Simulated scan of single mutants.
Amino acid sequence: MSVIEAAGVSRTFRSPSGEVHALRDVGFEIRAGEFVALIGRSGSGKTTLLNCLGGLDRPTAGRIVIAGRDLAGLDDDGRTDLRRDTVAFVFQTFGLVPVLSAEENVELPLRLRRTPAPQRRARVAEMLELVGLAGHGRQRPGELSGGQQQRVAIARALAGAPAVLIADEPTGQLDAETGAQILGLLRDLSRSTGMTMLVSTHDPSVRDRADRVLVLQDGRLLPEG
């Protein structure tokens, strides 16, 4: 069963020098539980594509369906619900709230869902243990290494049990060894949870970890294989 479907997706931006075609007729499907890598040079359209898939941006043309929901039919509230309940993001910049502890950062999406406090505490502890940070819950982001901060961000993304996790260059601020550990963690989590993951990265080792590799070049998706 396909969890992500994209058909004829294009995205055009206007600039002082003319139109910029960030995406050109992109189409693919991703099945439930797949770990898919999205690779391409800087400016190839990777972030634009991920933003469109996650409801952060709207394509100029084409159709996107996530977990059976056609994004074209969603208003702003519907897209907010999609990001709260169905799609979670992990970013290159971690995106943690610096004044909150690791536990409190992971708890944020559960508070938005108004999950009862006992269930929140249990879920937060479970997620921190899952990413190897049991015992670090009281620490704030500034007290953690870059790799640990990204693990907190991953735990936060997983807390609400989304159907899809989108990671945009999650190793971009990490050294090669730590980056490889994060990619390995995401791959292992995809296997253990059955969650569908789409990971954008420059790390060539992702080819060995991914079920499939999608390659973007100048806004176009190259044939697989």
Rank of each mutant, 00 (worst) to 15 (best):
A134N: 12
Q139E: 12
I4S: 00
G184K: 05
G137Y: 02
T178S: 10
S2R: 09
T201C: 08
S42G: 13
G146W: 15
E126K: 04
G40L: 13
T80K: 04
D168H: 02
Q149D: 14
L108D: 13
V90L: 00
P162D: 08
I64M: 10
H21P: 10
V26D: 15
L53Q: 15
G160Y: 01
F13G: 03
P162V: 03
L222R: 10
S42Q: 08
V131K: 06
V106I: 15
A67P: 02
T178G: 14
L50A: 08
G40V: 12
V99G: 02
V215Q: 05
V3L: 10
R114M: 13
N105Q: 08
V3K: 04
L185I: 09
R156M: 01
D218Y: 12
M127L: 09
A7W: 03
A32H: 09
A167F: 01
V3A: 04
G194E: 06
E5Y: 13
T80G: 13
A176Y: 11
T171S: 11
G54M: 02
L50H: 00
L165A: 02
G33E: 05
G27E: 08
G8C: 10
A7I: 11
A88M: 00
V65Y: 00
E126C: 11
R212F: 06
R111I: 11
L198A: 12
N105T: 01
R11G: 03
M127I: 02
R191M: 13
R83M: 03
S101T: 14
V3S: 13
D75N: 12
T80L: 05
I66T: 08
A157F: 00
R58M: 12
P98N: 13
V206M: 07
